[in-house]
Amino acid sequence: MAIIGMSSAIAAIGAGLAIAGGAIGTGIAQSAIGSAGLGVIAEKPDQIGMALLFLVLPETLLIFGFVVAILIMLSAGII
């Protein structure tokens, strides 16, 4: 098993938190948009494209978390 230093470990935890924060935020936003979107599709099935687009909008939050995580790991030399 590889042993990593304390600074790398803290960096890895930080990267994990960055992803987790983005994922939780995205999840909360998508739950509301998803249920509203399904309501729209039930009434107007032709609006599925728009509903899907709105559903994926908040994923940007997760992407930012991911980018921060990558930057942390790059600067800590983990990857």
């Binding site: 997760l62 992407i63 930012f64 991911f66 990558i70």
Partner: peptide
Amino acid sequence: VTHPLSYTRILG
């Protein structure tokens, strides 16, 4: 600022 950054989702 956020829209160019959003393209990093391709990597993600």
